[in-house]
Computed example of a mutant assay.
Amino acid sequence: MTGAGSGVPSPADRVIVRSPGVIDVHAHAVLPMSLGCAGAAGPEIGYREDGSPFFRVGEYVLNGVRYEGSAFMDPEVRVAAMDAAGIGLQMISPNPITYFTRLDARSATDYARAHNDAIAEAAGRHPGRLVGAAQLPMQDVPAAIAELERSVRELGLVAAYIDTDIGDRTLDAPELDDFYSAAVELDVPVFIHPSPVGQEGPPDDTRLRRFDLDLLLGFSYDETLAVAALVFGGVLERHPALDVCLSHGGGTLAFVAGRFARAVAKPRAWVPEFLVENGIESYLRRLWLDTHVHSAGSLRLLIDTVGTDRLVFGTNFAGWDADGATEVDALGDLRETTTANAAHLLRLGRA
Rank of each mutant, 00 (worst) to 15 (best):
48 R>D: 14
32 P>H: 06
83 D>M: 03
88 G>S: 07
312 V>L: 07
272 P>W: 01
101 T>Q: 13
240 P>D: 03
52 S>K: 09
232 F>G: 08
259 R>C: 03
299 L>R: 07
126 H>Q: 04
74 D>R: 09
67 Y>T: 06
257 A>K: 09
336 E>N: 14
132 G>A: 02
29 A>W: 01
120 A>W: 08
334 L>K: 11
223 E>M: 12
299 L>P: 07
153 R>H: 11
6 S>E: 04
29 A>C: 08
47 Y>V: 14
317 F>N: 00
62 L>Y: 11
8 V>L: 01
72 F>K: 02
99 Y>Q: 09
244 V>F: 05
257 A>H: 02
218 G>W: 06
103 L>E: 10
303 I>Y: 00
289 L>C: 10
205 D>T: 12
328 V>K: 01
305 T>R: 11
186 L>G: 01
38 A>M: 05
87 I>P: 08
17 V>T: 01
266 K>H: 15
84 A>Y: 03
326 T>M: 13
46 G>C: 02
173 A>N: 11
245 C>R: 05
95 N>S: 09
7 G>V: 06
287 L>G: 02
195 S>A: 13
19 S>F: 08
207 R>T: 13
165 D>Q: 15
329 D>A: 15
59 E>A: 15
44 E>Y: 12
20 P>V: 04
338 T>R: 06
327 E>N: 08
27 A>E: 00
122 A>S: 00
232 F>S: 09
136 L>F: 08
5 G>N: 14
10 S>V: 13
118 A>R: 00
129 R>C: 05
16 I>P: 12
329 D>H: 12
58 G>E: 10
211 F>D: 15
306 V>E: 04
80 A>G: 09
208 L>S: 14
321 D>A: 13
165 D>N: 15
37 C>W: 08
183 A>R: 11
45 I>C: 13
243 D>I: 09
158 V>N: 00
306 V>N: 01
202 P>N: 07
132 G>W: 10
59 E>V: 10
350 R>K: 14
216 L>P: 00
346 L>R: 00
318 A>T: 13
210 R>E: 12
128 G>D: 02
227 V>Q: 08
295 S>T: 07
90 Q>M: 10
169 R>I: 09
231 V>A: 10
39 G>H: 06
167 G>R: 01
200 E>T: 15
229 A>T: 10
223 E>D: 15
88 G>K: 06
233 G>M: 02
183 A>I: 11
111 Y>N: 02
